[in-house]
Design a protein around this nucleic acid. Sequence first.
DNA 1: GTATAAATAGAAATCATTTCTATTTATGAA
DNA 2: TTCATAAATAGAAATGATTTCTATTTATAC
Lengths: 143, 143
Amino acid sequence: MEKNTAYHTLLKNLGLKVTPKRLALLSVLGEEHRYLSPEEVWKKLRRSFKNLGLPTVYRNMEELERHGVISKVLHSNRQLYYYFCPKTGHHHHFVCLECRIVEDISVCAVREMEKEIKRRVKGTVTSHILQVNGLCSGCAGKQ
Amino acid sequence: MEKNTAYHTLLKNLGLKVTPKRLALLSVLGEEHRYLSPEEVWKKLRRSFKNLGLPTVYRNMEELERHGVISKVLHSNRQLYYYFCPKTGHHHHFVCLECRIVEDISVCAVREMEKEIKRRVKGTVTSHILQVNGLCSGCAGKQ
DNA sequence: GTATAAATAGAAATCATTTCTATTTATGAA
DNA sequence: TTCATAAATAGAAATGATTTCTATTTATAC
């Protein structure tokens, strides 16, 4: 299946309208194995679309995140970054703070934590945030 | 030992000057078992200090966080929140999104993740973010 | 085609956070 | 105690990423 068809289907399945800009946005994110800010995505897309509002990029990225198609990356500078995550199912990420590459992590120990919370706090867990920061092999070598 | 003396010692040990405002800030955070925003802390402190700048509160909270005295709470509204954490040593938090209470979690499975990353990605882990969100027993009941 | 809701552009607003500069203050030594 | 000095602070101002708003356009289902 061609990639664009895949993105087309993806949007359809989410009940979102298939617009050229959305397809292009998915394409940009899908080809990048690194996390990008909305502004960076916007700059890339403006090459193809002279008329493209930054708010549109923000809106779409937020929407895609809500639907689980892309995932947020937490950064100490408190800006928004997103990463297109081809892997499905529950998992987490290792992000390189230098080159921004993202690697999936299959291990998730939140289940154990959840147990501890249920037992001790008797509370309900609704979500969790887990991100491992560091330097990938390439970037660690350069230091 | 009196609390204020404890905070006094705490600041001394960090190499920070012991100012009345810093002591009061620590006192506010120390008595609250919930996470607070800089502005909320500022409003509380202004009762005692007519002249207190909001930037001072931001600066001090950031500094205390850097020294590990208080810890940041991640929130989807992307505002800053901090929690005074009496527990020492590596651990994580369960935060109630409703009443903002914070509970320590001793389990931390990041070690396992680190192993996976070392093996697969051959990268270096510099830090990790882990926070469990939910509702505490009290707040879950009200829903 | 056509109606309709969704998506968008572009400008403008928001507002938490940060920066800046002059002033004040805690601190350690004399 | 006094003094010198660096750190801390007030208050105003700037910043800038993100959001909101409104009119216009567009995808889609019938």
